[in-house]
Design a protein around this nucleic acid. Structure first.
Lengths: 225, 225
DNA sequence: CCATCAAGTAACTGTTTAGTTACCGGCTTG
DNA sequence: CAAGCCGGTAACTAAACAGTTACTTGATGG
């Protein structure tokens, strides 16, 4: 019905073939799309992110995006998975069991805070995923074992501290991690509304450093005997 | 140009006028739209919320929504403002200065946790607003003074505690509030990803109660001498 | 008892969006 | 050295969307 121009011959849009530095590089294109998608999803959420915007940011076009990642949802899941792999990988390199229990926990708190500070896009992605009740993360089975290492190592450090009599007996590994993550996550992810309603610029270096010390202080105060 | 059907007479879509319980009630319609909008924005964020969906949830139509609230952005801001008024109003009724300093802080921690627990839509709205860097909240001037009361009252309680020698001298009102809010906000707003990756159902009553006690414990441990 | 205005309805419009299709061209390999 | 595959482009399409318009209904005061 709306087939404007009923003639059979279809005009093909013969491109002018102007001298282009085409440089085919699948890996680079793929990586560029993933990075552009990370930024776009972090800035606008799943609902607000635009596929066209991702393609443009990556210096390519939608066709390649669908070619490599299937569709918007699969691309989003890939971005989320990579973000988790990023923090858990960096965390493993810490080896918090190598120091005294107290230093180990302090080290983990400092690392987590600084990682959050340097990776705001990770916090944004978590926020978006939780808005949707982990709808996409739930589909990712391979991620489960990624996080068990953290709890295992943390558990060992706490046990050692209890044996040495420096930590209280009720200290729980998941609770300790949630405490550390809470204090870092809320301060950073909610900095915009907090700065607005309380009239204090939370991202200023002085306040940032004070909060870093505060996190370590609170975490240790909550488990020390 | 695209004026399909060149005849001057316009077909008017004469509605069948079937027995309807129309009940005109501006206040109720307005309130219904606001409540429907709160749920829709909380569930889908600013980008994901649909104006049609809000109208349908409210049992009315888009025309009324635009009539009462201007446009989608103004409606969203109204929803956000009302959410803040809600928690700050309930907070004022606490009068944390009436008890001992230690009890007062514990009371505030408990209240905040329980309010967050009972108002998940408030947490969602905060998350959405922060994703957009407080873009809409910043436009709301009248909200600034709403929050100063909280910090003022909290400050008095801390000072009293310091005089009595039960709190450390470095205890800061904003830091204390941020600590309480962090521990409540993160646990609830990130419960979906956390439950998924750590394989523990955080919303289960047992764990919920344990975390409530944990918040009070951590908050007090961080400021007690 | 009718003129007026506010409450309310539903179809419409221009734009944006995710996803698709038709086509191009350089590199590898049989 | 040609054939076809893979990386790449741009225009297209159907659906969804925010916002508008043309119109109806009911209440009220002069």
């Amino acid at each position: 019905m709306n087939d404007s121009g009923g003639n059979a011959e279809r005009k093909r849009p013969r491109r002018p073939s102007q001298e282009r530095t085409s440089q085919r590089d699948p890996e680079r294109t793929r990586a560029a799309i993933l990075e552009a998608a990370t930024r776009e999803f972090a800035e606008n959420g799943m609902g607000g992110a635009r596929v066209d915007a991702i393609a443009e940011r990556a210096g390519t076009n939608k066709r390649m995006l669908y070619h490599y990642f299937g569709d918007k949802e699969q691309l989003y899941l890939k971005v989320l998975e990579e973000a988790y792999v990023g923090i858990r990988t960096a965390e493993r390199a810490l080896h918090i069991g190598d120091r005294s229990p107290e230093e180990g926990i302090g080290e983990l708190a400092l690392f987590t805070w600084r990682y959050f500070l340097q990776h705001p896009e990770f916090l944004s992605l978590l926020g978006t995923e939780n808005l949707h009740r982990a709808r996409w993360l739930r589909q990712s089975i391979r991620l489960k074992e990624l996080h068990s290492h953290l709890i295992g190592e943390l558990s060992e450090v706490l046990e050692q501290g209890k044996k040495q009599g420096v930590f209280i007996e009720t200290a729980d590994p998941l609770n300790v991690y949630l405490t550390i993550a809470s204090l870092g996550y809320f301060y950073l992810s909610n900095q915009y509304t907090l700065s607005t309603i309380f009239g204090r610029d939370l991202i200023e270096p002085t306040h940032l450093n004070a909060w870093e010390r505060h996190i370590v202080h609170v975490t240790l105060a909550s488990i020390k005997r």
